[in-house]
Nucleic acid binder design. Sequence first.
RNA 1: AGUCUCGUAGCUCAGUUGGUUAGAGCACUACACUGAUAAUGUAGGGGUCGGCAGUUCAAGUCUGCCCGAGACUACCA
Length: 1143
Amino acid sequence: MEKYKQYKNLNSTDIEKNIQDKWAKEDTFAKSLQIREGNKPFIFFEGPPSANGKPGIHHVMARTIKDIFCRYKNLKGYYVTRKAGWDTHGLPVELGVEQALGITKEDIGSKISVEEYNKACRESVMQFKDLWDKLTVQMGYWVDLDSPYITFTNKYIESVWWLLGEIYNKGLLYKGYTIQPYSPAAGTGLSSHELNMPGCYKDVKDTTCVVQFKIASKQTTNNIILDKLNDKKDKTYFLAWTTTPWTLPSNTALAVGDKIDYCCVESFNPYTGKEMVCFVAKNLLNAHFKTEGENQDFEAYKKGDKVIPWRLLFECKGKELVGIDYEQLIPWVKPQRQEGDAFKVISGDYVTTQDGTGIVHIAPTFGADDARVAKLANIAPLHLVDKNGKNQPMVDKSGKFFVLDDLDKEYVDKHIDKEQYERFAGRFVKNAYDDTLTDKDNTLDVDLCVELKAQNKVFKIEKHTHNYPHCWRTDKPVLYYPLDSWFIKTTAVKDRLIELNKTINWKPQATGTGRFGNWLENLVDWNLSRSRYWGTPLPIWRTEDGKEEIFINSVEKLAKEIDKSIAAGFMSENPYKSNDYESFDLHRPYIDNVILVSESGKPMKRESDLIDVWFDSGAMPFAQRHYPFECTTEELKQKFFPADFIAEGVDQTRGWFFTLHTIATMVMDEVSYKNVVSNGLVLDKNGNKMSKRLGNAVSPFEMMDKYGADATRLYMISNSQPWDNLKFDPNGIDEIRRKFFGTLYNTYSFFALYANIDGFAYKEKDIEYSKRPEIDRWILSLLNTLIKDVDSDLNDYEPTRAARRVMDFVCEDLSNWYVRLCRRRFWKGEYSEDKISAYQTLYRCMEVIAQLGSVFAPFFMDELYCNLNAVSGRNKATSVHLTDFPTSNDNEIDKDLEARMDLAQRICSLVLSLRKRHNLKVRQPLAKIMIPCDATTKERIEKVKNLILSEVNVKDIEYLDLHNNVLSKTIKANFKTLGPKYGKIMKSLAAKIAAFTQDDITKLESEGKYALDVEGQQITLDLTDVEIATKDIEGWVVASEGKLTVALDVVITDDLKKEGIARELVNRIQNIRKDSNFEVTDNIVVKVEYDRDLQAAIEMYKGYICGETLTKELSLENNINSPTTKIDVIEGKELGIYIETIK
RNA sequence: AGUCUCGUAGCUCAGUUGGUUAGAGCACUACACUGAUAAUGUAGGGGUCGGCAGUUCAAGUCUGCCCGAGACUACCA
């Protein structure tokens, strides 16, 4: 017979290496797919990592989650394809290359050609692919690495173009002018990613001011508020606060909150002392007007007085102020009326009264929110017209007010007050942009404020510290600046996005409704444009005047259009005509060489933008199959879309999760994924973010080399819910290794040792369930419950709960109770039915554990399974990963049995604590224990009596009737039943019950009810209203827990003492056998130094002693010549002993 | 700054519809046990359940505010 594999010690990394080799040799992953081919697919999308960064420990986390559910569904019979993918475009790649080559973006096109630059990017994207592959193999992540999708391939790009084309065709792609972060010092726009680089947001101290916007004498609409002001109208102002006074010349509106309360206050300007009336939010009134000035004497006020008198004229809602016209604050430039109205109060949904005045100055050219609310209210931005006839904000791209020479002459004459404007033209809006200026020089902000002060237009000037973003490259402040960009009109499908999101099962739910849901509620259009080089080019060609354009959604169409262009004489050759996708390149600069011809025969050039890399990754459900070019819609929907399951870090909520959802909604009107698990971050053990800079980043390879992949995986899953942040502590992995894998390994080793001796190979028919002993049926009952629970947890995407269940079962139930209590059954006696039952039961438990655990710890569990199966040959599958998920057998679940065993465990625990307290070794047998209980409990205990007796080494159990008068009892109110009935008097009622005498308790018990009076209320208690427990038995040593009480007979009779000595002797002989490295089956001869007590014990228990220790000859001698060692079986005596094996 | 998540023993985490001694593991201390031994058992110390209010007969659990950590989103003037 083949033997169960036995180990010298547990070496996880060796086991894992062997299993890796086995999987590679037998192609187990592919096989696991083959056996499910044709079955219902379980569709999974792999979020593509960038291979130009090294994998970190958090990738092990995310991939473990993915692996668990894919393996689970595979075991459940689904066909689970898992195509790997690589994200290869975008900023991280470009930045990496720039760093490696020592260049900046400005050098592209001069120091290095776009062609060379992109070549360098292409080469660098797979820089760490080997490391990623190594991680994948070592951690046991099953994903198809042989045919991954790669975002830079022409086929992938073609699919992306096609998808974008669908959006374009629906009219949801447009070119717009929006406010974006822009670094004048670097001359480039910045992505949100760049803005979020560490250290970009810095506290800066800026000059801020509260400005007075005067109500216009001529109003375009009627307004009740104006009537209320009547003769004070010409000295009434709106107060608005700004941290960027340089944007004030570009002001074209003021925003108020509709529902915010505003005050109209009469007072004086603190600088000029002139009388004024102004509007300010009620909440902020006292920030601007001191309480002690309220209703002070106006006549007595002199300019410069510390306390400025003021009085409240009336209050109103923001909504009532909307529509009022005001005078332009700094009338240098007149807005172009055709772009909309200007200088009106509008409503702004984002206005708050946290600081400032509750009235917000709006400069649509320099604020994203400003631009949005202005557009909604049809308010014109303040534009200049440059020499090329293009609209420009007042600030040019180098960060200074436009100089007149750069502007259109006609426009200047018509719209600009040259005399006023010229004094400031050419001034940089931040000193940092001008190399000739320092912090000490006056800023434009300060000069503007000073001028406004002189004009009675400023109410307050102060320095204010706030958080402001800086360009990570130049370290200079960023400007929010209007730029041309292409947008996807996601706002047009907002409602549908929200609706479809409600059908997605988010784990945790809060991420879906909260973070993601809120994000959708506040959706803005998706800015697709990136002024970059390495990425998917935007496939739109336009004539110079922008009046004609074409969208290219396939290579075929591109080639056709180029042919037309050749005919028109704009191009000479067609590089995209081949069917060989390897023969051309859709990237820049090649694609930029393509000039197409418009309907009217004009040349069209490509819009120079690239598209956001997030569109690339969100397009993967389609692009990974080169849909629709190599995959039909029918095939896609049958096999590849939408995903049943995806999982990534929670940081992807607004990244990949969003782009997947949006693209699928816009193109397919369907969700992209049905279930999504978003896991939290992996922090270091102190809860700090891991970073290379701090040196606290953990290498996944180091962890797996040291502790093994299984332990690492199981640690990460079991330690905390995946969506909570994980404080990663290597000691935790070690704990899992010792506690769980060590215990399971011990259990297996124990089994293997005896099964090999007995030749158990699971060849016998299963012993009938009903014929198995109580303890076997107990562990089988738990096992079946475990299967059921783990199945339902995994089905609910609750990996942590499932993993903890498996671990608890192995450590507590299987090892610490079943095996410990059953040890004797395995090594004692003949190969009987009871023994076979024990082997079969333990075997089955381990087999099922291997299957359930295989999703978490794929290596160890496969080893375990194969070791078992190699001998039994019970299963055809050559790997646990090729088996079917176990099914639970409800007939084997016995809740009453589980309750009985629980009772047994508690009784044992109590007896052991009594032994401890009275210093009675477990090896010393005792006569009996006594348990007060009712008839049902007695019946239950009877069934597990033998287990208890042998576990605690006691001869008998006696039961004590509950009405016995040697018992003393305690009573406690049952709050759960009484609470709802007697709410208010609960406290005194509980106190009265607690004060019951033994007689009271007896009365209640015998009559079944008890009447009493609490605070004048008549109450009748019945037995369910109280909890009665036995606490003491007179004359016995007693321990109790909850309702259970156990008494122990501590009298050691002569016979018991002899037996105790016999057991001590057996124990010593066993120890010596082991220390001498005898085989378990060796027979021995034993000689012990004579002692009277020992002789008495041996006389009585010779058979027992010899039987236990395989002793063939046992003798007592006066003198042992060369004793093996000395033993102390009789207290206070050291006796020599000699043992040898019989050959 | 906003939104969301989290805060329970030295550490990592459980804690059911609110119900009365708040649990487990690790770590620590002591004592046992030892044909599973890189284990195991028993006992012990260790908690104002982040803070303050509120609802309730009853709050770790529900509500509000505050504090701390983290993520995301942000020049909210």
